[in-house]
Design a protein around this nucleic acid. Structure first.
Lengths: 126, 126
DNA sequence: CGGCATCCTCGTTGATACTG
DNA sequence: CAGTATCAACGAGGATGCCG
């Protein structure tokens, strides 16, 4: 588990467990990564990058390592040339599936509402 | 709506709506605030602070303003001395209730698992 | 192919002190 | 009571370049 996740669990769990979920899922690209892995089952590093609109390798690596440390994702390295690394969801990662879906649904709902509001506020922009 | 929220909607909605939810709910204390308002209905600034383990006024104000800008919370000012300000959930804020509950449940589940793992890894610590 | 090292920028959190 | 002003610290995200 990441040090940050551990700290959040220590400091927030009594008051609000939701902060823990956000600490684990809240990094840039993380929900996208989890969704992609849930849909495809197993993905290589490069495939993942292409599915996610090409974040820099530095950033993608980092998010994957964090998800791995937090136990949501497993990483399999094949010792060969050229290198091959596979990522897939752990059981814990799969358990987050419904939550990610809930986040997606509400986020879509929210975005739709706000865009409708913006369209009313500035109708000549379109 | 906050500029940040707007940017996230612009940049992420096609790929992953979940990022929108995290942008809106992801600030420190925000899930706690929403939960407190959901339970109590209406709360004054000071009451809210006491329920949340006393964040600094600077921080609490900021989170409330952001939630207000994002349309989840409404703020009512009573022009009197001493001042009195009430916060309550908007309809949109109430619509986030089940999501916050889902975050809380999974976060609690995760924290429980990780603590059990830590206890096994370092049994002499207790 | 799948990284790591380095550097930089920005936003967020928070402490402290003060105010209408 | 319910804030605001100022300042400091920190970490996340990302650009760029190199490597086995």
């Amino acid at each position: 588990m990441r040090e940050k996740t551990e700290r959040v669990i220590r400091e927030w769990t009594d008051t609000c467990d939701a902060e823990v979920s956000i600490a684990v899922l809240g990094g840039a690209w993380k929900p996208s990564i989890l969704k992609a892995l849930a849909e495809h089952g197993v993905l290589r590093f490069g495939e993942l990058g292409r599915l996610l609109d090409n974040p820099t390798a530095r950033v993608l690596t980092r998010q994957l390592r964090e998800l791995e440390q937090d136990g949501l994702v497993t990483r399999t390295v094949y010792q060969q040339v050229p290198p091959k690394v596979e990522y897939r969801l752990s059981e814990l990662g799969e358990s987050a599936g419904p939550l990610v879906e809930a986040l997606t649904r509400w986020g879509g709902h929210y975005a739709g509402l706000q865009r409708a509001t913006a369209a009313v506020a500035a109708p000549t922009a379109g």
